[in-house]
Amino acid sequence: MDNAIYNYALRMGDTCLILSHRLAERCSNGPFLEEDIAMTNISLDLLGGADLFLSLAAEVEGEGRSADDLAYRRNERQYYNHLLAERPNKNFAHVMMRQFLHDALLHPLYTGLKLSKNEHLAGIAEKGVKESAYHIRHSSMWIVRLGKGTDDSKEKLQDALDDLWTYTGEMFEYNDEEATLAKDGVIPSFEELKTTWLKTVKEVFNEAGLEVPKDKWMATGGRQGVHSEFLGHMIAEMQYLPRAYPDAKW
């Protein structure tokens, strides 16, 4: 099996799945109905992406497991999503900031991945690039709106940024396996993605009047399956039925 593709697809799939799950938790909690719909819509797009990445991982693995097996039968130490994706829905500013920090990565990532020499990854990116273009428009608009809205909204948003910034470093960590994939034109380069991401977030934060936190200690671990305490609860809830009734089909 192609370990490098398997690992990459699993990481991407897990990040999309966990972020989608967090947004899904917001259903019926939006500040108004249109925004509630937008959140479930984005959650649904991310879930579609998760399904595609996990299906690819399952296929590459070739041991008869399905995307559902990967999503519903692994424990938290076998999940490789970014820590940022699992941060709780503290308030609307946190949700939107977490989303924006991801969107600013996923959009250029899909744009690069569309050119992948691996046709499966390129196919996934084809769909992802259209959706993520809408997602980044939506979240950056909210960053500006909240940043320039009221004193209260600006303060909440700055708090969210200060809290979440520490989880962004991990999104650009890569190992030798991934360096080779990037060199071979299979995935976009992490270094280049970081440059693009930084440019986007600085532009939007500047427009919103937010201060970019000074570089400080960055949290790490998600890529090794070492997560925050929050992930176990999410997974316990998500996997409850397939785990409780292992013989049932749903």
């Binding site: 909690n29 939006g30 500040p31 108004f32 925004e35 308030n91 609307f92 709106r145 909240l146 809205g149 009221t150 209260d152 909204s153 909440k156």
Partner: peptide, 8 residues
Amino acid sequence: EGAWVREA
């Protein structure tokens, strides 16, 4: 809880 968002 959404009041501050709508106000902003």
